[in-house]
């Protein structure tokens, strides 16, 4: 009972804190920095969600931009195409007011997450047969298929993309609130998974799949679940990003983006949520900080990446975490003392 109360309080404090921060920051912050901050948030969600698949269950997916794209386009399709079709009949869906915007954003989020999650399910299925580099190629192929499809579907603008998406998440200065709400959701979700008995089974799949099988872990279920949750979160990131940028095109979701997200997970240390968060921040902020170098900036950026990987091949954090001791959950007690 007390734990439940503490949880409710924690959730309330988070909501209010995020809301106030969001209001404050939006007024005080230079728009450029604000944009970078939002971008960091989006990529943290992407990196943390990919970490669920690559880091915790030890799959090797490098097509995360595909799920990101599915979420972004499905979310944008709701606000740009489907919502106008039904708004005549259901007037409460009207955008423009705060609660109308929030309602539409929530619908877009639900649709985006469900469709990205379903895509994750479809891509997760071959992961039962494919291992390591073969799985990597399959996921990369999936991301490319999505990319090419988007380039060629005219109703979503083809190569020009979709423009004029309403900035639903900025309505009421809530952009930061929404983005970081999902950042927190993805981090807390990862943390809860890792600290539960179930999380132990996820880790066991990474450690040794055959042994996990032999221990009665349903490895199939673990892998597919990781894919579905990871890609649904990437879908949420897509919906939020689309409704922040107001314009999306297939280029945003190209292979480069997939590779960037994978780099974040590897650089942060596969399996470490903290690492993913920090690496995502570094990889978004660093190129901005190097802007004074003009044309040489991507060269320096790449060199820095190489140096980081050479000096710490296990990633910044390895598999360690800060902020949550790895196994704080209850351990079975032994009777008496150990000899």
């Amino acid at each position: 009972m007390r734990i439940l109360l503490l949880r409710v309080i924690a959730i309330l404090v988070t909501f209010i804190g995020l809301y106030m921060l969001s209001q404050f920051v939006t007024y005080q912050m230079d728009p450029y920095y604000f944009q970078v901050l939002i971008e960091c948030g989006v990529y943290i969600i992407l990196a943390v969600s990919l970490n669920l698949i690559n880091g915790i269950t030890g799959q090797f997916s490098i097509g995360h931009a595909g799920f990101f794209a599915v979420g972004a386009y499905v979310g944008a399709a709701w606000t740009m195409i489907w919502q106008p079709m039904v708004v005549g009949r259901y007037s409460f869906l009207q955008m423009g007011t705060l609660h109308g915007d929030i309602l539409n954003l929530l619908i877009a989020l639900v649709l985006g997450m469900i469709s990205a999650g379903m895509a994750g399910f479809v891509v997760g299925l071959p992961s039962l047969r494919l291992r390591g580099d073969y799985l990597a190629i399959a996921t990369l192929g999936f991301a490319e298929v999505i990319y090419v499809l988007l380039l060629n579907i005219n109703s979503v603008g083809g190569a020009r993309g979709l423009n004029g998406i309403p900035t639903l998440i900025s309505s009421g200065n809530l952009a930061l609130f929404w983005i970081f709400l999902f950042v927190i959701i993805s981090i807390v979700l990862s943390r809860n998974i890792m600290q539960s008995v179930r999380g132990l089974t996820w880790l066991s799949v990474r450690e040794d799949e055959i042994a996990a099988d032999a221990m009665g872990v349903d490895t199939t279920k673990v892998k597919v679940t990781a894919f579905v949750i990871g890609s649904a979160l990437a879908g949420a990131a897509g919906v939020l990003y689309a409704h922040f940028l107001t314009g999306i095109s297939p280029d945003i979701f190209s292979m480069n983006t997939s590779i960037l997200i994978t780099t974040m997970v590897v650089l942060g240390g596969s399996g470490s949520v903290t690492g993913s968060v920090i690496a995502a921040t570094v990889l978004i902020v660093l190129p901005e900080m190097l802007r004074f170098l003009k044309n040489d900036r991507m060269v320096i950026y790449s060199v820095l990446l190489i140096v980081m990987m050479l000096t710490r091949p296990q990633g910044i954090f390895g598999t360690k975490e800060i902020g949550f001791p790895k196994w704080r959950r209850k351990q079975p007690k032994t009777e008496g003392r150990s000899a």
Binding site: V197, D213, M215, V217, Q331, P332
Partner: peptide
């Protein structure tokens, strides 16, 4: 395999295959 374990058949696989990066306690919990 996972249903067999529930039915009461379990194996200690060849080459031990313990989870080397987990603690002994976590291995037992699994």
């Amino acid at each position: 395999p996972h249903q067999l374990v529930e039915m009461g058949i379990c194996q200690s696989p060849e080459g031990r295959r313990i989870f080397a990066n987990m603690t002994v306690r976590e291995n037992l919990e699994l």
